[in-house]
Design a binder for these strands. Structure first.
Lengths: 341, 341
DNA sequence: CTGTTAGCGCCTTCAA
DNA sequence: TTGAAGGCGCTAACAG
């Protein structure tokens, strides 16, 4: 049987004990050297490393994790890779993890809570050192698994609800509110709203609610809406802008669910010869780099996506072992005055 | 000691043997049920599943992988998350993996081959079932590790060189060549080139080479260049377009290293009042959705990033166990005539 | 500074 | 259809 085994994996597997044997030391010594842990004499280290290099030994983390009951995996569950904000959050996560030897394992939920639950189960099976999730909406079971796991949990983007452990993000409600205040101050009165699917993008809805509250406090309201069914996109923003103006030509400012949509609005105006700001002001959300490169700098609100990912990791690393009671980090937002509103 | 141990992990760990004990079966029976493998009577299954659910048992994949000497991990190494093409490739990978229980573990190399080597080592330590890499440039050691691992290796984006195992992508050289042919046919003669860092983005260089060859065959050449130091961006494209026209006002068409840059060119022309196509034609590469939403549809070349990721996974899954000799999949490209050239 | 002893939680193989 | 025995490759907890 042994023979059969050996035949199957033609690559002679080099293991710790193999290295130990050839270096005339015990396994644990090699183990310590590979992990830079414990006191090791320089001579032994060099002798062992020589063997390691000769054999091309790569420690098996699976075995290591099993033995030490901890893995260097960070589970990450995001709703989508299509929406540019999530790759940016991922960038932040990778940036925060740089230099550590933690590996993010990323899964995508497609904005589906049941899919998220399945993903969380699947990630948990790797006994991750921590989990990073987008949003704070989870199924009951998912919530329970997360709470009971005892590991650090960071819920990103949103700080409008109490987190399981760590929340990093901004208050979308108050971002929406402040957008409204800003635009009212600039003299706009006839508000249009151009949005996309609220069921998936709950944060867009929160911003809308905040906007409405600001308007309402000023005795105003959103007088026209144009919503697309699916995800946000520049093309959708373009079409919906045409739609909005057709439905209500009196609108003097359009607030968009995000920059993708708003940039579509800019493009519509540019190609239809509509004077941006004079005839229709445009206001987005996110502060994408692209907005800055447009013929007219987009008026929008900066949400710090990269920072959100990075800080989440930093918070987790502050104390990987224990939760320290709910902790909320507000990464804030910032109005970019721009030239379109 | 046992006592201390138990105190440390306050969460009573539910393991296979725990479930087995409570269900009055052996561990292996539970194991078989969890993996849907081997013949199990329906009665036993239900009894066991009841316990599994009551305890919230989640199999430990680390232990499972160690015992079975295989993991369901797919290692992925990409150069960057900033360049939109890689998240799109990732989307394809996730799409291809959907429904399987493989988990991608993604690392970022920042276009650094040594960083890639380190990443490959680190991913290999998880004994992945396969590896997906961007590009076919690797350090010698990395190349060796990959070859010797014996697992399926997919090298994406580029099919201009012989792969280790599987290559999925397009010939950037011939894409560049065909761009040149296309633009010559449309009557352009004074070519400008606007690009970014070739050291990092070797594929952009290949396209440039192809372009030059097409021009050369027609007795033409690139008469002016504007290159930025860093990564591609719309802002850089904008600046470089102004630069190019200042340096050589006779240029009648600008070929860009990619769509990000080209869109910057469109924006420059729009805000400087330069007639696109009449005065300066603009041609990009990638076929980003955004190009389609511009006031004038961007003339460019579609590279099928999503497809590249998806097909790579499909190829890998065709036969996870064995390499079948170098295999190249050409996902092709397609000229989008557009309105800017 | 180095080694010994015992597992980690699961799966493979063989036997019933 | 089920089970028993043994081990995957590594590391924790001690002891020298």
């Amino acid at each position: 049987m042994k023979e059969r085994r050996r035949l199957a994996d033609h690559k002679s597997k080099v293991t710790l004990s193999e290295v130990a044997r050839l270096a005339n030391v015990s396994e644990i010594t090699v183990s310590r050297i590979m992990r830079n842990k414990g006191p090791i004499s320089e001579v032994t280290r060099q002798r062992v490393m020589a063997v390691v290099n000769k054999l091309g030994y790569v420690p098996n983390r699976i075995a290591g994790s099993l033995a030490s009951a901890r893995s260097n995996i960070i589970g990450v569950a995001i709703p989508s890779l299509s929406n540019i904000v999530f790759p940016e959050v991922l960038r932040g996560i990778h940036a925060g993890l740089k230099g550590t030897d933690f590996q993010p394992v990323v899964g995508v939920t497609d904005y589906d809570l049941d899919a998220e639950e399945a993903l969380i189960r699947s990630l948990m099976a790797w006994k991750p050192a921590a989990m990073i999730l987008a949003g704070s909406d989870h199924t009951g079971s998912a919530q329970q698994i997360l709470v009971q796991s005892g590991i650090r949990i960071a819920e990103l983007m949103d700080i409008d609800v109490e987190p399981i452990d760590i929340a990093v993000g901004l208050s979308h409600r108050s971002a929406g509110y402040d957008s409204g205040r800003h635009l009212i101050e600039r003299g706009y009165r006839r508000f249009g709203y151009i949005g996309h699917n609220w069921r998936d993008d709950r944060r867009a809805k929160l911003r809308y609610d905040g906007l409405c509250q600001a308007l309402s406090e000023a005795g105003l309201q959103v007088v026209a809406h144009s919503m697309v069914e699916g995800a946000s996109s520049t093309l959708a923003g373009r079409a919906m802008t045409a739609n909005l103006l057709a439905n209500d030509p009196t609108v003097d400012v359009a607030v968009y669910s995000n920059d993708d949509m708003a940039i579509g609005g800019v493009f519509h105006c540019l190609s239809a010869g509509i004077a941006i700001r004079e005839r229709l002001a445009i206001f987005g959300f996110n502060g994408l780099e692209l907005g800055d490169a447009l013929p007219m700098v987009l008026s929008t609100m900066r949400s710090n996506r990269f920072l959100i990912g990075k800080i989440a990791v930093e918070k987790i690393m502050e104390n990987l072992a224990h939760r320290s009671g709910p902790c909320v980090v507000d990464t804030g937002y910032e109005i970019i005055a721009g030239e379109t509103a």
